[in-house]
Amino acid sequence: MELIDSFSDHYGNRIFRVFRSSAAARKNQLRQHRHTEFEISLILSGSGLYRTETGNYDIRAGDVFLYSTNEFHCISDITPDAGQDCMELLNLQFSPALLAADGITDADPPLGVFFNRSEAFRNRLTRENPHTAEIRELILSVQTECVAKEPCYRTAVRDLIGRILTTVTRFYGYTNRDARTRPSLRYDENLRVAVAYIEEHLCEPLTLDGIIAAAHMTKTHFLAVFKSFYGMTTWDYINIRRIDRAMSLLAASNRTVLDIAVSCGYNNTANFNRIFRKVTGITPKEYRSSKKSTSDSSPS
């Protein structure tokens, strides 16, 4: 993975990153993963097969994929294409906090494409839709802004992502406009505190009561607001973040599975193995074996 840029809010919570990733040719390697952030991916080169919760998609250069938080996806097959033996992607990952602002009252907030989907939704944007080419250019413009880092570039990045989601909402029919499953995009400041507390104590014994106390919110309000903005429960968020850390340790070190489990906040391997399989679809040992059997860097 080649990190191009990332930035955080004033509590230190990462709210955006852009990176390029590549993976060598492979067949039927199921390395599913989930994120606590939204993801927009542009296929720069290569072809293959993407497996997602909404179905399987063939991949080719120029395709754009959208993924919500806690949404399973996996590039299982990569085939040589146009003389290249790998696939390259440009990925944008961002928290709902990136787009949150007081005073936004749109009936169809831009995150509706993630949380308020119609039956027509597909993870891969329709190739024939003329607006897909426009969205490709907007994604590349995000990369350009993050490389150049001109004054106010972070505001420009936020606006570009807003334009991408607005274009999808208006011209793809992917949003259910007859139902509201999420409130207007008001990000509770106390929620930022809660997320910062989780990240600071991620690998320690966390309790829901401790998180709520740090956020100075009632339990009912906290649980409702957290799930509303992240599309998952607090414990799902914690487990995905912990397993993400564990995956890095499994791939980059020879530490035992038990040692890694404990260092990521789990007190036994049975619980760690169960949650690891729930998040990734495979066991920690299978993941480590798959990473050692190939030198490619899987898309995240």
Rank of each mutant, 00 (worst) to 15 (best):
T169L: 14
T169Y: 07
T169C: 10
R170Q: 15
R170Y: 15
R170M: 15
R170K: 15
R170E: 15
F171C: 14
F171W: 14
F171H: 15
F171Y: 15
F171I: 04
Y172M: 08
Y172P: 13
Y172G: 10
Y172H: 14
G173D: 13
G173E: 13
G173H: 10
G173A: 09
Y174G: 04
Y174P: 07
Y174L: 11
Y174T: 07
T175K: 10
T175D: 06
N176M: 07
N176C: 09
N176G: 04
N176Q: 12
N176V: 03
N176T: 05
R177E: 06
R177N: 05
R177I: 11
R177T: 15
R177A: 04
R177W: 03
D178Q: 14
A179N: 08
A179I: 14
A179D: 09
R180M: 10
R180L: 10
R180I: 10
R180D: 07
T181D: 07
T181H: 10
T181C: 04
R182Y: 03
R182E: 07
R182G: 01
R182D: 02
P183E: 03
P183R: 03
P183V: 00
S184G: 09
S184Y: 12
S184D: 12
S184A: 09
S184Q: 12
L185A: 05
L185R: 08
L185E: 12
L185V: 05
L185C: 06
R186W: 08
R186D: 08
R186Y: 10
Y187P: 00
Y187N: 01
Y187I: 02
Y187C: 01
Y187R: 02
Y187H: 08
D188S: 08
D188L: 09
E189M: 06
E189H: 08
E189R: 14
N190Q: 11
N190P: 00
N190L: 00
N190K: 11
N190A: 01
L191Q: 04
L191Y: 06
L191P: 02
R192W: 05
R192D: 13
R192N: 14
R192T: 14
V193W: 02
V193F: 01
V193K: 14
V193Y: 03
V193G: 01
V193E: 12
V193Q: 09
A194H: 09
A194Y: 09
V195Y: 04
V195D: 09
V195L: 06
A196T: 03
Y197D: 11
Y197G: 02
Y197C: 06
Y197H: 15
I198R: 04
I198E: 13
I198S: 04
I198G: 03
I198T: 06
I198V: 15
E199V: 09
E199W: 07
E200C: 02
H201P: 00
H201S: 01
H201C: 01
H201R: 10
L202H: 10
L202Y: 14
L202C: 08
L202D: 13
L202G: 12
L202W: 13
C203E: 10
C203Y: 08
C203P: 00
C203R: 07
C203T: 13
C203D: 11
E204Q: 13
E204Y: 05
E204K: 10
E204S: 08
E204L: 09
E204F: 02
P205K: 05
P205R: 05
L206A: 01
L206Y: 04
T207K: 00
T207F: 01
T207D: 04
T207M: 02
T207L: 00
T207A: 01
